[in-house]
């Protein structure tokens, strides 16, 4: 019984971490529109310290 309960705990936590991880990775590899807009206007003559 204890083993089954441990398995369920592991499965639930693993699934939660997996879902969060997948969402975070998708966010990491698919930059937001803001990031894309920043890169599209990149100009070596125009140096900015940063954008908000």
């Amino acid at each position: 019984m204890a083993k089954l309960a441990t398995f369920i705990v592991a499965a639930v936590l693993g699934a939660a971490l997996g879902i969060i991880g997948i969402f975070a990775t998708v966010g990491a590899v698919s930059p937001s529109a803001d990031h894309v807009a920043d890169q599209s206007v990149e100009d070596p003559a125009m140096t900015v310290y940063g954008t908000r």
Binding site: F23, T25, V29, S32, G50, T51
Partner: peptide, 19 residues
């Protein structure tokens, strides 16, 4: 951080606030 250019992409994930 103030600078959008130094924020890792994963920070925009919808589940980050939940986590």
């Amino acid at each position: 951080i103030w600078n959008a250019q130094t924020v890792p992409g994963s920070r925009s994930s919808a589940l980050v606030p939940v986590a």
